[in-house]
Amino acid sequence: MKYYLRTAGTLIIITVCVVLMLSVINLFTSDLIEEHEPDSVASASVEVTENDD
């Protein structure tokens, strides 16, 4: 039991750390990326409002 806990636990910890690191980087870079490459899925609505100037 302790063995499975150790293996699964280590993997989960590593995954969580990696996701945290990526979230931090995402905070810094997501605006810049939006600028350069508007996400086709996420910003469909944004495009409409922009055209309403």
Partner: peptide, 9 residues
């Protein structure tokens, strides 16, 4: 990938 897309698009 994120850093390159942001700073070297």
């Amino acid at each position: 990938e994120m850093l390159i897309k942001a700073y070297l698009p």
